[in-house]
Amino acid sequence: MDEMQKVDDWLAALLANLEPAARTRMLREVARDVRRIQQQNITAQRAPDGTAWEPRRMSARTKQGRVKRRMFTKLKTAKFLKATANASQAEVSFTRQAQRIARVHHYGLRDRVSRGGPEVKYAARPLLGINGEVETTVQEALLRWLAG
């Protein structure tokens, strides 16, 4: 653990030496890579830790006119899942109009199916998160920028 702290301190010192414009470009690339990983997880319908999401509920209505597309196909697009960066941070988040839907599904909250419709408790389906793949990607991007 002590060795990791030394590596973190060394990386922090190197990052502090980069100009703000270079840090912004680097963090923008990191945010794009992290967004791509999150989109892949949503496409595969799995949580960031690798576990599969709970499938949609079957109902009487579902059988006759069932939904044929996968969950969150539009929510994972770059229109709603934004990657932003500045000289001090990189962020991957949903836009304002998509945040409510994402929050309800991420935490498994209650929400109305449609305006004036019944209120339903949704299953928790984590959309965004950090895992080993994200950490490795971030470390590789940092080393690539610091080396070149």
Rank of each mutant, 00 (worst) to 15 (best):
L143S: 08
L143D: 12
K6Y: 13
T24I: 04
F94Y: 15
W53A: 01
V7L: 15
Q89S: 12
R56L: 11
E140K: 15
E54V: 10
D111F: 03
A47I: 03
D2T: 09
T137G: 06
L143T: 10
A147T: 15
V34M: 07
Q45H: 06
V34D: 03
K121A: 11
V120H: 14
A124M: 04
I42Y: 01
A44L: 11
L11N: 06
P126L: 03
A78N: 12
R46Q: 14
D111P: 00
A85S: 12
L15C: 11
Q139R: 14
P118K: 13
Q97N: 11
E119R: 12
A123C: 00
A44C: 01
M4G: 09
R36K: 12
T62E: 06
E91Q: 15
G117Q: 09
K82L: 12
T95V: 12
R36T: 14
D8W: 06
A60Y: 10
R28I: 01
R103C: 03
L146F: 10
Q38G: 00
N86H: 11
P20S: 06
A141N: 07
Q97I: 12
G50S: 05
R112L: 03
V120W: 13
A90P: 00
D111C: 00
A31T: 03
D33Q: 13
M4F: 13
L142Y: 10
A60C: 00
A147R: 15
N41P: 00
Q5E: 13
A141I: 02
G132W: 05
K74M: 13
T43G: 08
E54Y: 07
Y107F: 14
V120F: 13
R28E: 14
R35D: 04
L146A: 08
N17L: 12
T62I: 01
A31K: 01
A85D: 09
E140M: 10
L11H: 08
R23K: 15
E140Q: 15
T136N: 14
R46W: 01
N17F: 05
R70H: 11
P126V: 06
R70L: 12
T24W: 00
P126Y: 02
R36F: 06
Q89E: 15
Q38M: 09
K79Y: 10
T62K: 10
R36D: 14
G65R: 14
L27D: 01
M58N: 09
V92G: 05
Q64Y: 09
P55R: 02
P55G: 05
E3G: 05
G65W: 00
M26A: 08
Q45E: 15
V30C: 07
Q139V: 09
G116C: 07
I37D: 13
N86Q: 11
K68G: 07
A31I: 04
L27S: 06
Q5W: 07
E54N: 05
K68N: 07
V30K: 04
F94D: 12
L75R: 05
E91A: 15
V67K: 14
Q64K: 14
A31C: 07
L27N: 06
S88A: 14
T137C: 13
A13T: 06
V92Q: 06
A44T: 04
V104K: 05
W53I: 02
A16S: 13
A124Y: 04
M58Q: 11
P55V: 02
S59M: 03
